[in-house]
Amino acid sequence: MPADAPAPRPHQWRRYHALALLPALGMLGGLPFANRVYPLVFGLPFLMAWLVGWVLATAAIMAWVLRLDRKHGIATDDVTRSDTEHERAGATR
């Protein structure tokens, strides 16, 4: 690694990042309960509706995590083009 390139920031783990585990736990952990056809939900078999519900919930949860990350300054604003080019010029490979 070239000496003038900044060291990559190690990822900062926060407690709220554990929220991202919810989709896996809910979607898959709920299977014994959700593995049924009836009641139909919006015309869909219950199992299908359960999984679709979790897909929607995943988007919401990840949006929430992103908001918290922005608030804590982890999801930094976009790196500008010139920044990247500067680094590339400094790269040795």
């Binding site: 991202a20 989709p23 199992l47 299908m48 897909v55 995943t58 949860i61 990840m62």
Partner: peptide, 16 residues
């Protein structure tokens, strides 16, 4: 339906 699920979980992993 596994297709729906694995893609969803892959995306939450991709965030990190």
């Amino acid at each position: 339906l596994y297709i729906l699920c694995y893609l969803t979980l892959a995306y939450s992993l991709s965030y990190f």
